[in-house]
Amino acid sequence: MGAWNVKGFLGRYRFFLAMGLLWVGLYFGKTDLAVSSLEVCWYSLKEMLIVIPPIFILVGLFDVWVPKEKVVRFMGKGAGFRGVLLSFLTGALAAGPLYGAFPVAAVFLKKNASLSNVFIFLGAWSTMKIPMFLFEGQSLGWKFALTRLCLNIPGILLIAYVLTKMLEPDEEQWIRQQADDLTLR
């Protein structure tokens, strides 16, 4: 089992290991750059530690407590306008970088939320988060932030529409299966 484990570890962590090697190379080539990149890493690590653990705890609790029927009713295929609104709101109320949205999207998919609502949620999370919007207005001006917000709503809807239309049933099946595998049964 030992050899298999090592192989599995190397496979799963290959991206991380490659980056580690790149960093070592950088250290010998441009030491100051390597050191300042570690400072950035520390900074991003703190950001991850602020958002990632609570997100996963909430995803886990959502998984065990919220029954499928509820999610289907509020965010499923037949949820209509209410589902769209709810998807926008859950995305906008979030915090943290886009990669935090993927596990949440997975648990929604697992509970049979519609694909289009999940894509709307992803879009809203990526670019319409309310705390970010307030900060954007303060630093770049309200004209800037409000124009972007007004454009983002139809933009997100359009992207979600195109993504949903382009997927074949078997591809949707694959995505739902993947969501299931990644959040564990």
Partner: peptide
């Protein structure tokens, strides 16, 4: 479940962390 789903993407997260830094 929370731990399992975190563990599933942990390698990617750590890789992204280093990459972003660089």
């Amino acid at each position: 479940k929370a731990w399992k789903s975190l563990e599933a993407i942990l390698p990617q997260l750590l890789g992204i962390l280093l990459f972003t830094g660089i």
